[in-house]
Design a binder for these strands. Structure first.
Lengths: 214, 214
DNA sequence: CCAAGATAGTACCGTACGGTACGGTTCTTT
DNA sequence: AAAGAACCGTACCGTACGGTACTATCTTGG
């Protein structure tokens, strides 16, 4: 039970502790994330940990909230869209999405939340969903809406269109990385993957006929 | 360290034990999967567990191998393909894929493997990948190849085409379910989702022009 | 019927971890 | 400067779990 509702957040000192905890989680997985370990890594006492975050679950929640607050999705202004600029914006979005999903902190937190999903009624999973996907989904939604207003895209259901775009970009890559597949290997392919996905998406939802691949 | 290579598998009694263990895992998550718990649920002694499976990790590996051996992907013969029958086959495949991914045992095992991914060098994750996705991917590959031979599909890279199909079908649904989102809710949408995904796929890779949605 | 192996049930051991308590030190406030 | 709060470091407690040992029971083959 942590207060993650409005914007109380935490003090700089507490954020530093959360940073250490994230580092610990990334390096050693959940098994390494013991209260004693966090205290040692952050040079703080266990007593302070329990005072600040309540219990271990409170630390986990705080870690997710803190990380989400760090990864602010930059809201880009996309006016005067042309077919080419829309495609370029979409490709950038796709690359950013892939970069976020393949980040070690993101992967570690997703693993953590998935591991706890059957325990705590998916509290952490809901947080990740809310703070992570909703955020980046909003950015994509804005982009898609702008494309539609410019007459470049055609769709009725924005959520569905975004889902399609997401699926084309990510496919089963996220799951494979979560299962432990070497991330470095897959990262080399990101640019090509982003472009192919966007091309396919424009094939499906674009109003202008895309040029066929040779 | 378990011997999962060829086909030694396990005795009926041991399979029954693995069944109990899977039940336990599905009901209570990994925390509930203690050696004492498995022994109690299966009415066997801990000593037998360690004799048969070596250690706790051996039990986990055996569970994955056992479950994979149960879910045999039926290899369907798809000859004399027409445009309609190809679409029908693809829709069936999509539904089957969604059903498999949303199965409680599948979700529990994926959660388990993901939770261990940072620990054991992704042993379990590799097993799941190998036994799970490769299997169902082969079925899809056969279907796609048949479609291409019949002149109904056009693609150079079968893996890529399958990846696109997978992404269109699943999008981020698998991850959401792994994070704890209510599965029953999403299951209602499976038929529609399967059809939409296949339609989009045929839009991208089909040779005949699909009819536009009204 | 008996010996030998396998297994269930239980008791036991060591360790690791979540959570609490406490003494000593530093920082803040008045 | 004194008083008080915050905090670090450590010690401590209870429990839970992985793994082992032992005994009683059951099965099986001669």
């Amino acid at each position: 039970m942590s207060s993650l509702s409005t914007h109380p957040e935490f003090s700089p000192r507490q954020n530093a502790v959360l940073d250490s905890a994230l580092r610990l989680l990334v390096d050693g997985g959940e098994r390494a994330l013991t209260t004693a370990g966090v205290a040692r890594a952050a040079n703080c006492s266990k007593e302070s940990l329990y005072k600040w975050f309540g219990d271990r679950d409170g630390i986990l929640s705080a870690m997710i909230g803190y990380q989400a607050s760090k990864v602010r999705t930059l809201e880009e202004r996309a006016e005067t869209l042309t077919g080419d600029s829309l495609r370029a914006h979409l490709v950038v979005f796709a690359r950013d999405l892939l970069d976020v999903l393949s980040g070690d902190v993101s992967l570690a937190l997703n693993r953590l939340a998935i591991g706890q999903a059957s325990r705590d009624g998916a509290q952490l999973g809901q947080m990740l969903q809310e703070r992570g996907r909703r955020q980046i989904g909003k950015r994509a939604g804005g982009l898609l809406d702008a494309g539609r207003r410019a007459g470049l895209l055609r769709f009725d259901n924005g959520e569905e269109a975004y889902g399609t775009l997401y699926g084309l970009i990510v496919t089963d890559l996220h799951l494979r990385m979560l299962l432990g597949e070497d991330v470095k290997l897959t990262q080399q392919d990101f640019s090509r993957r982003a472009e192919r996905a966007v091309d396919a998406f424009l094939d499906l939802y674009g109003t202008k006929r895309q040029m066929a691949k040779p």
